[in-house]
């Protein structure tokens, strides 16, 4: 049974597929989220030093993972779009970017809220938080560039070059910020996750991360459908699709 994957590479055939898959991923996200929250709140013990405040890590750490993972996914689709010159890959890259930016912002928000009870300040120049902030700027740069270019094809290609240059720089930024943090502050102030990682805590985070992943796929599929409709509005299959809805 050789499924011709390229059948789905054209926006027209991918559109219904995305529509069918999105609800499944959304429900998977809800399910995993519920399990994760249960693990996080009702199974994981209270942390010795940070009391209950540490429970924020159940969304802070997965959100940080997702923001970096989605940037790599975005760069992957951008690279595929640049090499294979397929329109759909470019659309997928622009579909993933806003969700990645959202998770990056969530990671920053929860990170600062977690820093307040433990270190008394809303913003801690911790290595991971700082590189998360720069990652958010990279996302904004990508989205601003795509918004500034009218011609969708050029927007995809230009965004692709920026995403590829960005993805090469993310590790460099991460390590230079890491080095910068140790130089100026020493390793005392850092949002390491709770030192004694009880098994249930770790399980809670993994499940929440999977839930976030399902959510990101669902959001990307929903957004790519909108992008396909916007870009293919002149195509006759779109007119036909609109007619069937009426």
């Amino acid at each position: 049974m050789n499924v011709n994957w390229f059948k789905y590479s054209s926006p027209q055939t991918f559109f219904p597929l995305a529509g069918a898959l999105a609800p499944w991923f959304l429900s998977a996200a809800l399910l995993l989220g519920a399990v994760g929250l249960y693990l996080g709140f009702f199974v994981a013990p209270t942390d010795a030093q940070q009391g209950e405040a540490y429970r924020i890590i159940f969304i802070h750490v997965p959100a940080a993972w997702m923001s970096m993972f989605l940037y790599v996914v975005m760069a992957f689709w951008a690279g595929v779009g640049l090499v294979l010159n397929t329109r759909l890959s470019g659309m997928m890259a622009s579909a993933v970017a806003p969700t990645g930016a959202l998770f990056s912002f969530i990671a920053l928000w929860t990170g600062s809220l977690r820093g307040k009870p433990t270190w008394g300040t809303w913003w801690v120049w911790d290595a991971r938080l700082t590189s998360e902030l720069i990652l958010l700027f990279l996302y904004f740069g990508f989205m601003a560039l795509q918004a500034a270019i009218d011609d969708p094809r050029r927007a995809d290609k230009a965004g692709a070059v920026l995403a590829l240059v960005g993805v090469i720089n993310v590790p460099i930024i991460y390590f230079s910020v890491q080095w910068w943090n140790t130089l100026h502050q020493g390793a005392s102030v850092s949002l390491k996750s709770a030192p004694t990682m009880a098994a249930t805590m770790f399980a809670g985070m993994i499940v929440m991360a999977l839930g976030f992943w399902m959510y990101s796929i669902a959001a990307a599929l929903l957004r790519v459908r909108c992008i396909i409709l916007e870009r293919e509005r002149h195509a006759d299959w779109v007119a036909q699709y609109v007619r069937t809805l009426k």
Partner: peptide, 26 residues
Amino acid sequence: LTLGLRGGGVLVSLLVLPLYVPVLII
């Protein structure tokens, strides 16, 4: 990347400043 775009000046800084961070730090 921002050749010929309106508001190119500000856009360049948004694109490029995050990439300057490692050089600035070191």
